[in-house]
């Protein structure tokens, strides 16, 4: 195997990690501030992808579609927060799991009712289609490079938002002591709606970007949701930094495991058995990683408390 292939796979791992980070950032934010397990995060991701595809098809502009995905997911998020989610903050995790599980059903079937049962078309904008030549003879799709860039930009934005702005101070205060900041006159209800909408917008953005290179279809959010949970659990729930590190670790592990495990096994066994065992193990790898992390550090890598 050539150095070029290894380099491309590492880049793939990085890119996959960034995609997972976009999804996990909103999830971990919502959990950190409101203590809410939101299984419907994947539904908001799907909302973003469908909004982007529909608007891009109607206007012919991918960028308008991308803006629409942010707007649609944020407003769907705000609406859901006002109607359902705010009644769940005081409840235990169980009720949250059940209610947001119910929301998945509602979102999926409503989307199918609105857009039909077939996948939608969503294609790359002209400016980002095709591949670019990188130093060292590496050829890499431009859009995937853009995803890596957007991922970093979102990470920087979130660190700035939480660390340097008034809203960030309130968010951090809300995490630490809910009653106190309410007593200080901050409208906690509005703060929560805002944070939830922000998390939803991030999910919608991820859905639009990922939908562009994958497929826009009902149920697209569920496999990613489980992965996003794996990411935030490994990173430590509630921590943006944890989500970033967790996403990169999961992205690398998954990509490199799939690429090289079957070849590794082929050194010791006959090829067809090695492929079967290697691919089976590769698909279990991130869950094994997660279990291992939790056994060593039950609160995740950057988690404050168990």
């Amino acid at each position: 195997m050539s150095a070029l292939l290894v380099a491309e796979q590492v880049l793939n791992g990085l890119q996959y990690g960034m995609m997972l980070f976009l999804m996990a950032a909103g999830l971990t934010l919502v959990f950190g501030v409101m203590g809410l397990i939101n299984l419907a995060h994947g539904a908001l991701y799907m909302t973003g992808a469908f909004a982007c595809a529909a608007v891009a098809a109607a206007t012919g502009s991918f960028w308008l579609g991308l803006a629409a995905s942010l707007a649609a997911a944020a407003s769907a998020g705000a609406l859901v927060e006002l109607a359902v989610i705010r009644r769940l903050y005081a409840r235990d995790h169980l009720d949250q799991v059940l209610a947001t599980f119910a929301l998945i059903l509602v979102f999926s079937e409503t989307t199918r009712w609105l857009f039909g049962s077939f996948p939608l078309y969503l294609s790359l904008p002209e400016a980002l289609s095709g591949a670019v030549d990188l130093p060292g003879g590496l050829v890499y799709p431009a859009f995937r490079l853009a995803i890596i860039g957007i991922g970093f930009a979102v990470a920087v934005f979130l660190f700035w938002l939480i660390g340097r702005t008034r809203l960030g101070i309130r968010i951090r205060a809300g995490e630490a002591d809910r009653e106190m900041i309410a007593a200080l006159g901050v409208d906690i209800g509005r703060l929560y709606t805002l944070v939830f909408a922000l998390g939803a917008a991030l999910a919608g953005l991820a859905g639009a970007l990922v939908g562009t290179i994958q497929s826009v279809q009902v149920g697209m959010g569920e496999p990613v949701l489980i992965l996003a949970f794996v990411v935030i659990v490994i990173g430590g729930i509630g921590s943006i930094r944890g989500a970033l590190v967790g996403a990169l670790v999961v992205g690398m592990t998954d990509t490199l495991g799939k690429a090289f495990l079957p070849q590794l096994f082929a050194l010791a066994m006959e090829p067809s058995a090695a492929r079967a065992v290697g691919s089976a193990l590769a698909s279990m790898l991130i869950y094994i990683l997660m279990a291992a992390v939790l056994i060593v550090r039950p609160q995740g890598l950057f988690g404050a408390r168990a």
Binding site: F31, H93, V97, I226, V233, A276, I288, M290, L294, P298
Partner: peptide, 26 residues
Amino acid sequence: RTSGVYFIMVTLAFAQMLYYFAISWP
């Protein structure tokens, strides 16, 4: 060894491991 949300997720992880094993075990 874990609790709360971490317990929810780690039990999910073990079930997923078995699920993927069952799918790819011919």
